[in-house]
């Protein structure tokens, strides 16, 4: 550690080396606290059902990988996984497309309502999904969409728009107008400018939006348990809940199911940490 790194942080002066060492140690202890439940989950997922009750802390005598096979087939997690992929995949594509189109309108066109439209989209940011549970259920019911993928897809797109429009607009503003003008001189219409100039230049911002939304949508629980009651259409979070209700006590298979359910977001996060962090700091410090 260089002496340059203690900008404005009083630890070094108040306390000696000891305080510094202890605070460093604390950071590692906290890492341990974060990792232990995850480790426990992994161990539990390869134990046998009886070992879980007789030997809660021990490693399994024999790794029971069939827990995963059972969870995937008889436990229904294969179907839940497929449902999640369909619902989240379609939602993501539309969130990216619709929000970048809208952001393009807000940045590239001067029209009387353009400030209003920006505020109109941003206002959605202030409305949490929990608050709209009852009226949205009512609308889905009236439109006959309950127990279909569409109920979740429409809700997810709607709630994904405010943040995505905001982030993409922030990014589009930084693209020099001369690019669009040059393309128009070459005979591109507005849609072509959007698809050929703006979208390719916006890949980093689109990736940040996609990663952030992916984690949020993959993990969404409240609408997933309420809009879908047909077991063959359930997404993973709702499937976990249904599994626990049906096989309470089968912790080994449940743990395997949980690992299956959380693996995609963990892998995504580990692969795209940098974009993930960028999404966070774009959404917060510059908001």
């Amino acid at each position: 550690m260089s002496t340059e790194s203690d900008y404005g942080i009083p630890v070094r002066e108040i306390g000696s080396e000891l305080v510094e060492k202890l605070s460093g140690l604390m950071a590692f202890v906290v890492t341990g606290i974060f990792l232990v439940p995850i480790g426990l989950l992994l161990v539990t997922s390869v134990k046998s059902r009886t070992e879980i009750f007789t030997n809660p802390l021990a490693l399994p005598a024999e790794f029971q990988f069939e827990n995963y096979a059972n969870a995937w087939t008889t436990g229904g997690f294969g179907q839940y996984f497929l449902n999640s992929v369909i619902v989240v995949g379609i939602s993501l594509v539309f969130i990216l497309l619709l929000s970048s189109l809208a952001a393009y309108a807000l940045v590239q066109f001067d029209f009387p309502a353009d400030n209003f439209m920006l505020v109109f989209f941003l206002a959605g940011f202030m409305i949490p999904p929990q608050v709209l549970l009852v009226p949205l259920y009512t609308i889905m019911n009236a439109l006959n969409l309950l127990n279909t993928y569409y109920s979740l897809i429409f809700a997810y797109i709607a709630f994904g728009l405010p943040f995505s429009v905001f982030l993409l607009r922030q990014f589009f503003v930084t693209i020099p107008d001369t690019y669009a003008e040059a393309a128009r001189m070459d005979g591109c219409n507005e849609l072509q400018v959007f698809f050929r100039v703006y979208l390719p230049l916006s890949m980093p911002a689109l990736a940040a939006v996609a990663i952030y939304q992916f984690v949020f949508l993959w993990n969404e629980f409240l609408y997933a348990i309420i809009f879908i009651t047909d077991d063959t259409l359930r997404t993973l979070p709702a499937g976990l809940m249904a599994f626990q209700g049906q096989y309470s006590g089968d912790w080994a298979q449940l743990a395997a199911g949980i690992v299956i359910a959380v693996t995609p977001t963990v892998i995504f996060f580990l692969l795209f940490q940098r974009q993930f962090m960028r999404g966070i700091s774009m959404g917060t410090t510059k908001g």
């Binding site: 974060f34 993973l236 979070p237 976990l240 809940m241 359910a261």
Partner: peptide, 9 residues
């Protein structure tokens, strides 16, 4: 890492 896991899990 914890925030990437689904809250149900």
């Amino acid at each position: 890492l914890p925030m990437t896991l689904m809250s149900v899990a």
